[in-house]
Design a binder for these strands. Structure first.
Length: 465
DNA sequence: TTTTGAGTTGTTCGA
DNA sequence: GTCGAACAACTCAAA
């Protein structure tokens, strides 16, 4: 009997899984294994929040496997050694896995491939970074031509269905899945493939059609909320892109079509940053643009701590950081505002912010997170106009017009009138007394003056850029 | 090889 | 309140 190992990494799903499909095609016995890799678990880029989400996802996957006659085998240790052992124990002759793009994952897989029959299949992105090159072979570094190329490629077929049954496993030792108490216990992001598929279906049925108008509104649920699920492959990139194309085909008018198209564009951005990290792995450590590697960032631990705690005195920034603390997720617009504040207003190294987001975001993905931070810092792949500095008051007025987002995450501002909700320090003393919110006591005074901080940032960027 | 048009998501200022 | 221009120069992609 032919035995294969299905090595699960960031593809915690049974549907549209090319590695699983290939394993089942190749072998009559398939062993699903997840390896807890100390090299990853001890990384400064992972924290308890995402680890908890991963473990919950493994529980869900195990349950899905058991319903189909199989089960998840969990092991811990160096992946090469673990796979060696498992091959000996099970007599497996081949290993199938979804190819990953992070530098660590690629080094790990190269190492395994030298000693074991590892087959890598695509799936993290719809189109692999290898095929997305310019005519003369070099990788794209500008999004728009990249996206034109992406759209010109034939869509690689419809998503695969989940197998109805999997082979019953021989007796193999497995660890229990560790339990990390989720915070909060009733997370707005329950892990697992069925939840992911339910969300995608619901988003593609309704929300996507208003996505172009609503996606920037922090006070609405106008986004897909799929990022944690895409991060761990509880839904595949191809399933998401396929759903976007379906929605576009079913759109009833231009606005609806625009919604579907805009969301697909976001998925292409995800693929763009995956390709950037694949082709330029140094971006994890250095600015993409060499001219901007020499900025002398401020060493300001107290300011950084205030940012982390959501105590900067700028309501939208603080709401974003507290949403992160409380849910492990931040609305995309709020991410940009909070990131811009750390980099441009506080002049703190974007890599500190990047690391903090990686530690706390459920969707923390090395490629997308790095790309986002470098975009805000202006050190990344785009034209990077040095004058792009978000104004937290203006952004609040535009994208949280009644202050509902701020009040949800910064409860001490609940009673502040709408006119002051994005600049509460402007409340006259009698208003502060009337609403019972004293600036400097109940809520911090602004950490910096935005207008001054903006000038400071523009000057520094002007010199370096 | 040279040339040309373009480049996610911003803000401020003055008319 | 709204609108367009200015905010630098540079690099990329493609013809």
């Amino acid at each position: 009997m032919n035995t294969a190992i299905w090595w699960i990494r960031r593809d915690l799903r049974l549907s549209d899984n090319q590695a699983l499909a290939a394993a089942m095609h190749q072998a009559s016995m398939v062993i699903p294994v997840f390896i807890l890799d100390p090299g990853l678990l001890n990384s400064p880029y992972i924290g308890q929040t995402r680890l908890g989400f991963l473990f919950d996802g493994l529980c869900a996957l195990d349950a899905d496997l058991r319903r189909r006659g199989s089960a998840l085998i969990l092991r811990e240790g160096n992946p090469l050694e673990v796979l060696h052992t498992l091959c000996l124990e099970s007599g497996a002759e081949s290993i199938f896995a979804e190819a990953d793009i992070s530098p660590y994952a690629r080094r790990r897989d190269e190492q395994v491939k030298r000693e074991l029959p590892l087959n890598l299949l695509s799936g993290v992105t719809v189109h692999t970074p290898e095929v997305l090159r310019k005519a003369e072979g070099s990788p794209y570094t500008v999004f728009t031509p990249f996206s034109r190329m992406w759209c010109s490629l034939p869509f690689p077929g419809g998503p695969l269905a989940a197998p109805e049954r999997l082979p019953v496993l021989p007796p193999l030792p497995s660890l229990g899945i560790p339990a990390i108490p989720r915070h909060p216990a009733d997370s707005p992001f329950p892990a697992g493939e069925s939840e992911a598929q339910r969300r995608l279906a619901s988003f593609a049925d309704f929300t996507i059609y208003r996505y172009a108008e609503d996606r920037s509104r922090m006070d609405l649920d106008g986004t897909s909320g799929l990022s944690p699920y895409l991060r761990f492959g509880m839904v595949s990139a191809r399933q998401a892109a396929w759903a976007a194309r379906q929605a576009e085909a079913w759109a009833k008018n231009a606005a609806e079509r625009q919604g579907a198209e805009t969301w697909l564009n976001e998925l292409i951005w995800r693929e763009f940053y995956a390709a950037i990290l694949y082709h330029f792995p140094y971006v994890r450590r250095l600015a993409f643009r060499p001219q901007l590697r020499e900025i002398s960032w401020r060493d300001a631990p107290a300011d950084f701590a205030a940012w982390v705690e959501g105590q900067t005195g700028y309501p939208v920034v603080d709401a974003a950081m507290r949403q992160l603390q409380n849910t492990g997720w931040i609305h995309n617009r709020a991410r940009m505002i909070a990131a811009s504040f750390l980099i441009k207003d506080l002049l703190i190294d974007w890599r500190l912010g990047e690391c903090h987001f990686m530690q706390h975001l459920l969707d923390g993905d090395p490629a997308a997170n790095n790309g986002g931070w470098q975009w805000v810092a202006g050190t990344g792949t785009d034209a990077a106009p040095y004058f792009r500095v978000f104004n937290p008051m203006l952004q609040g007025i535009k994208f949280d017009p009644q202050g509902a987002y701020v009040r949800r995450w910064v409860p001490e501002l609940t009673t502040v009138p709408n006119d002051f909700i994005h600049a509460p320090w402007k409340m006259p003393a009698d208003v502060q007394r009337r609403v019972g919110c004293f600036i400097g006591k109940d809520y911090p005074a602004p950490l910096v003056d935005h207008a001054l901080a903006r000038e400071r940032a523009l000057n520094i960027y002007k010199v370096k850029g």
